[in-house]
Design a protein around this nucleic acid. Structure first.
Lengths: 338, 338
DNA sequence: GGAAGCCCTGTTAGCGTTCACACTTTGAAA
DNA sequence: TTTCAAAGTGTGAACGCTAACAGGGCTTCC
């Protein structure tokens, strides 16, 4: 009765219903786009909703529907270029589909921290999660831990039974190596990422395949860890190999590698050609500008959400999505000089 | 009765209560750490909770408490080094405090997109939000839009009526300039960020203050936009100034600047000294390694959450937190040579 | 010995939605 | 005319939790 004049309480469905002269259920129907509501009533209700600034209470809604319209993002290394861009794509696609995005990061790949992160997301009763953690270790942990929601991965080209979107990193690596072969190089080394990353494995495989198919040896392999520091060390130690070109698994390592190589007195690309991976925004301003492989990580995020929502709607796992890379040629790679 | 054997339905409070032989309210009390529960009952209930793997339903809880235990993060430029690190800190602090983190990004600074993001977070009835968007424009929009939850900013040293944590960027800029003055430089230029960023403004101010206090002119100012490309252009145009040293507002621009300067035939640091800002992970592997200012952005995130939760508990706005920077000296800065 | 207090526990009533169903009205088919 | 279906609308009961109150023991005090 009296509550008609208490503006401090946000309006609820009943308020809308009362003012529009209908039942709360009709308001609900309008809100959910139910077909059997007459046009005139629908319009009247919508007007009142607008006037009152009514917004539906998600807690009450998800209490009864058992859906939260929230997707969880399980992430790590959010500071790395790829993952952070992916997150951006995830968020915008989720918002477009009227979903919320809740994040949980893991600091390490232990079962314990994955379980904690999963519990955290589970507590919020997310409808599904997207894993932006590119370690097989995580997927293993995931398969060991019981969970009640669909999981989609947003990373590499391999990957197991889970629905996923992926950037075709193997192809990207092949393109990089192909480019070097076309320039006349025959001894092409690789500085890889840590082998507990899918991305690293895929890029190694692509490197190896391209060389083998061209009848070349794939025997100069240095394992790195994505950091510029490790790339620098690899560059310094280059003297012990006879490679005239290197494919480096990411741009940051390539940056360090460039410096290491140049400190040894070698010139890039005259003495050694270098190709990176990621095309992070400043790769064009390395010294010299870096030839690298570009991936659309934002698109990866968007497709992952799409795959997850499809899985949520249909219950079936949609076919894997592949996103193709492109090579960006700059000054760090050039023809072989002998 | 019969539902004791239906494992597909996740257990609810009543199930725990029944098995433990208490009322559901007692279970609730145990869960919420209410003092007046006897030790024996508490233990019994906890055992059952453990056995059943019971987890409390947040939707039901927040329906009645009108709190969601969720903090919203309003962010943009999540790919930039500072913001992405800040997000990491935010997430871990929030999780420690048993809060969820829900993100909403804005692509531009228009009132429209801020309102949309705010509505999005509001729909989820977040308890408060942390703004990681360093534009005054956003704060302005924020103050124009009606919102019903506390807001904390995580950025710069100035900032208005809102609670906040901040990195002391003015001090950081002063330290950078101080360092150059100590090396004997008297003509010190600055390449700034876009002036619609607090961070950019603060760094300019710090630069200006340090110079003025030393009795030096602060008249060589180039406006940039954080990108390496713009830094590169600035570096190329350096010829038209008589500066022997430059303070660059972030590392990415410094990278481009380095390259531009060197393309002009100048050597770093022999002909010109350069100091950046951020100490992003690969700054030590630029060519030459970059002297820069380090900020603990993760700590910034943590303190922001702390400030927000305090505000949530006490209702009062806690005093602003300041995080001090540190200078990291590398090879890109050296004594003045005349 | 009874009133008063405390500690612990249970009962009841919401929170704001959606779901399942029941009820009217209308129009067409029988 | 009667019958039935379909379209539109309303009613009541969940959903799983917490808040407020109510009660039953026990001690304590006059």
């Amino acid at each position: 009765m009296t509550d008609a004049l208490l503006p401090q309480r946000p309006p609820v469905m009943k308020d809308v219903a009362r003012i529009a002269g209908v039942s709360h259920q009709t308001v609900s129907r309008v809100l959910n786009g139910h077909p059997s509501v007459s046009a005139s009533v629908r319009e009247r209700v919508e007007t009142v909703i607008e006037e009152l600034g009514y917004r539906r209470n998600v807690a009450a809604r998800s209490l009864v529907t058992r859906r939260s319209r929230t997707v969880g993002v399980l992430a790590t290394e959010l500071v790395q270029y790829g993952p952070s861009r992916t997150l951006l794509g995830l968020e915008s696609a989720a918002r477009d589909a009227d979903y919320f995005v809740s994040i949980a990061t893991v600091r390490d790949v232990s079962i314990k921290s994955v379980r904690e992160a999963l519990n955290h997301l589970g507590d919020q009763s997310v409808d599904g999660i997207v894993v932006v953690v590119p370690h097989p270790g995580i997927l293993e942990a995931l398969s060991l831990i019981e969970h009640s929601f669909p999981v989609v991965t947003a990373t590499s080209a391999t990957g197991g039974p889970l629905g996923s979107a992926a950037v075709n990193q193997r192809l990207g690596a092949r393109m990089a190596v192909q480019h070097l072969i076309e320039l006349g190089h025959t001894r092409i080394g690789h500085v890889s990422g840590p082998m507990n990353w899918f991305d690293a494995v895929e890029r190694v495989e692509g490197w190896r395949e391209a060389l083998t198919e061209a009848g070349l040896q794939a025997d100069i392999l240095i394992q790195g860890d994505w950091t510029a520091e490790r790339g620098y060390e690899a560059g310094l130690s280059l003297g012990s190999s006879d490679a005239s070109a290197f494919f480096i698994a990411n741009d940051q390592m390539a940056l360090g590698f460039l410096r290491g190589v140049q400190e040894c007195g070698l010139r890039v690309p005259d003495d050694v050609s270098i190709v990176g991976y990621d095309d992070q925004p400043d790769a064009g301003f390395f010294y010299p500008p870096l030839t690298t492989v570009k991936q659309d990580f934002e698109e990866l995020g968007r497709r992952s959400i799409k795959a997850l929502l499809e899985q949520l709607d249909s219950g079936t796992i949609p076919p894997k999505q592949m996103i193709d890379p492109a090579i960006v040629v700059r000054a760090s790679s050039g023809p072989l000089r002998r």
